[in-house]
Design a protein around this nucleic acid. Sequence first.
RNA 1: GCCUCAGUAGCUCAGUUGGUUAGAGCGGCGGACUGUUAAUCCGUAGGUCAAAGGUUCGAGCCCUUUCUGAGGCGCCA
Length: 476
Amino acid sequence: MIVRQEIKPLLEQPPLGEEVTVMGWVRAWRGNRFMVLNDGSGAENLQVVVDQDKFSEETLRQIGFHTCVSVRGQLTESQGSGQSVEVMADRLEILGGNDLSSYPLQPKKQTMAFLRDNAQFRMRTNTFSSVFRVRHGVAYAVNKYFHDRGYYYLHTPIITGNDAEGAGEMFRVSTLDPVNPPQNEDGSVDYDQDFFGKATNLTVSGQLQAEIGALALGKVYTFGPTFRAENSNTSRQAEFWMIEPEIAFADLDNDMNLAEDFVKYLINFCLEHYQDDLEFLDQRIQDTEKNMRAADRRPMGLVDTLKFVVANDFARVTYTEALDILLRSKTYKKGKFEFPLEWGTDLQAEHERYLVEKHFERPVIVRDYPKDIKAFYMRQNDDGKTVAAMDVLFPYIGEVIGGSQREEREDRLRQRMQEMDVHTDELAWYLQLRTFGGCPHAGFGLGFERIVQFITGMGNIRDVIPFPRAPRLADF
RNA sequence: GCCUCAGUAGCUCAGUUGGUUAGAGCGGCGGACUGUUAAUCCGUAGGUCAAAGGUUCGAGCCCUUUCUGAGGCGCCA
């Protein structure tokens, strides 16, 4: 059995004078004497002091960038100023040598694009190991938040026969011969002969199934991968994780309160448990922004931004109020908005950014959108024009949550489905949730990598996903 | 899918109005160095200038197409 101590706890409560065994990857090798070691347990490194007389030339020659080593020695107070403690190596074993003449990574700044191409190694860098530790922390906090509050984690299907809301292009799932699929008389593919006896696809949302759970278990959430086959060249991913709570006996106000409390909890959890990583990422952003024009820099550092978000109430406005704010804005009066502002059309990214970054200067929840730009299942308001929908808008990343109170009145839901050409026969089970013991209920979807992106401050969403999936990108 | 910008050594970049043999730093390799903090110092190798085609006496530089990347937009979470 291998026995070793992890570096993070060792640095938190250093057992000075004791013999320790640590294993990790060399981050730097200086002066034939100082080895900087990281084992992934945290953002901080451990310095190992190597006395050349104690080890063979063969062993010493193998030490280099990202060599994997095992070290045993006494933990002592450091004589140098860059660290408080260090290990005086007595035993040194090379666990995995590293051929530096062909190793792609270097101990210096490299572009995100280059590291993305070398995803098998990028997690060994400070930036990516911090990002993925935080990503884990957010995932854990999601489950902890809901569990502690009596929600049940409901696994909704990955393969499904229905398109939740026409949310996007879907990936087909089929075992039929792609060259010569069985055909109907009219030449269309005969999916009766397919594995499931019908056309199926990867899920675009678990919401409709989550509603089944909510109307029995009271409070549920799904947290799993979703898939959209849209051809996009920026932030949109083909595979991403979504968190979708669904709660019975709740209206839009309950929904908004949950959304705000939940997001703040996730951020707080990271501030509390991943302080080192967030401080490193904060410093990284400041270094990158040094060469930028002041106008392009963040108004606040990363950690300060996170603290600000949890300390202040989100602004809440209706769609109609938001439109009035935009129409009264100087930006609009000077004709600086590219897209028109007209009641009934969706807010564009530039409008959302104005509300969040210029007008309110904090996260904003916009509610009661025109019914024609929202999905069929959203509850119709009494004005006949709007639905009980809400979007949570964040600085830098835009919409992070979209949610609604669901239409629980069967006749209204059926009428809306017909108006919007949603097949009532395929969703008969969904309508039955209203016919038989329905109740007011609500929920939302939160893009997991978007909130991770916000918390880590990473500029490109692909850099918070271990193995991103996008058009022409399916390596690993 | 649309728009803008970019692609030069393993990496990060410079390369003048088109003009001889393509430049640096880092990294690699060889050497020096027992208190370094992106260690430092000396030496050295390394390039079909993204690909294809075109203009020209002559193209890294100009033109066309394709591929790749970055940023923005659309759409969304």
